[in-house]
Amino acid sequence: MELTLTINGKTETLSVDARDSLSDVIREKLNLTGTHVGCDHGACGACTVHLDGIPVRSCIVLAVRCEGSEVRTIEGTRGDDAMNVIRRHFHEKHALQCGFCTPGMLMMASDIIRRYGRPDEKQVRSELSGQICRCTGYMGIVAAIVAAADELAGEPAAG
């Protein structure tokens, strides 16, 4: 089947199978391997991308469903000022070790900050419960998101 979608601002027309997931197409047809696939059935959150501006799990979205849609992957966030602030706080707060979950964490983090403005630790933990990290124990990730949100809101970071 023919699929046309906008990926990171660029419109692409591809030939896909009906059964291809969005993550298959992103990684294998578009060679955007920053999107990681952990579980392939929507349990781990590693493959989270933005579909028409909202986070979805690309392993449980059919690619053909995305006809005409706008998809943003981690590669599409390089010039995004807010994401660069989040990324810096991930670095400073040791919010990653192996890095496998990180692209999904970042895509989710930017949505949490967009919706909450300045989320507190409890809100971040609750919102992140669908993103699995097997290295960090989440302390650094939660701290990074809270600190990034504070900085983006123009407020001095607490503590």
């Binding site: 009906a18 997931s21 392939d40 059935h41 929507g42 449980i60 979205v61 059919l62 053909v64 469903r65």
Partner: peptide, 25 residues
């Protein structure tokens, strides 16, 4: 198929199958 958030995991894990999916989104 609507949101597919239950159906696609089930299809991926092959605990169910479909001949034709009708996308109503």
């Amino acid at each position: 198929i609507a949101g597919g958030q239950s159906l696609l995991p089930m299809l991926n894990l092959r605990v169910t199958a479909a001949e034709t999916l009708l996308d109503i989104t």
